[in-house]
Design a binder for these strands. Sequence first.
RNA 1: GUGGGCGUAGCUCAGUUGGUUAGAGCGCCUGGUUGUGGUCCAGGAGGUCGGGGGUUCGAAUCCCCUCGUUCACCCCA
Length: 420
Amino acid sequence: MAEPTFRAPKGTRDILPPESSRRRALIDAFAVRASQAGFGEVMSPIFEDLGVFKRLGESTDVVTKEMFDFFDKGDPPQHLALRPELTASVCRAYAEHRPTPPWKVWYEGPQFRYEQPQAGRYRQFSQVGVETLGSDDPQVDVDTIVLGWRFYQSLGLSQVTLLLNSLGDASCRPAYLDALRSYLEANAENLSPQSQTTLERNPLRVLDSKRAEDQAVIAAAPLMVDFLSDETAEHFAAVRSGLDQVGVPYEISPRLVRGLDYYTRTTFEFAAEALTSAQNAVGGGGRYDGLVEALGGPSTPGIGFALGVDRILLACDAEGVFDTPAAAVKVFVVDVTESNEGLKVCEQLRAAGIGADRAYGGRSMKAQMKVADRSGAPLAAIIGDDELASGEITVRDLRGDSGQHRVSRDQLVATIQRLV
RNA sequence: GUGGGCGUAGCUCAGUUGGUUAGAGCGCCUGGUUGUGGUCCAGGAGGUCGGGGGUUCGAAUCCCCUCGUUCACCCCA
């Protein structure tokens, strides 16, 4: 293969049509559902002060080793980073603008993590998500989770499992962490070397290990649910009860821990069972009641989720749902005269709100018809010398069997509106 | 950061134990059909075999390095 001079950087890719229109449709579908649920769109910068993301936690890989960071040209230079996720940006924006709670926002856009790419994992990836700041009512948790669940359903995905857990809060998690750490340390010789390293950094994360040799130790480890304070347990129960009431099925996953350290209480993940690759989490989220405060804002509870656009589309492929939308072009104009007639007809159709395209370069009718067919347009508007002379246009059905007939220029728009 | 697989036309891939001007299907262009696509037929364009070095009379084929890609670990969407 002739090596191109440049290519998209590692872990990034060009999304070309028609795949790009499928992503656009997915994001639009999410936007509709989120706004119907009372969320407004927040558009925050693609990069932030590095400090914003450092607040996510010192044992968070996303922060410690996966950041795209750089210095700007200021004096002194500011240390910036491409956003590795959006919850921190939203919390920063909340602390900065102090909107009236509860503040419900949704977002969409690229995020960046410096990782080894693999199936369903890119250095630039895209997420859609929501955040609600300023309320710790368990019904907010339910509303949030249900929104995500319904979104997957609306795409046609049927093999998504909702995993649910509570990670406790400052009143009860420390006691659990102590118990977990003592247990794991006592059984360290039966853990993989990698998990032994993880244990020193963050014992919770050991529960996430996929290595076979760790599974026996993990299976017998103490569980957070047994350590929840009365208040936290009650909150968790209210969330479960709300999900039961609205009929969203879930699976309690007592070992579900998530990679971002800020999570408290409710945490959840959406797993796509149709994906056979290792990265089958198509979405995840939870409460982060201390994050706004950590960013210098008022003590504010928060909950949200992020859904991975790239992985959702992989899951849709695996389930054979959510096809690429049909082409927007309804009429393909074929003009074999040496005039500007095709140009004018195309413009007339577009002005009337009818999607229209045409061929360039004065190609033969056969060649233009071929392009018309390929365009996906259901109709062709043909202009030859005869039509030009009589002021008419031949409208041909490219998909059905209604044949073709001539209409005057004046009748063209009405005729086409009747046919499409 | 660690480990494995793979890099031959735009795409999917063949290329026999290293041996003449490197092939197929699809796609693309032109024509058969001087006004008609989707079927069919005939032509055509398109490749320094990822890059560099080495072994050899001779390398797409063997060896080394490198880049890319892919899968997995770590971690996450």
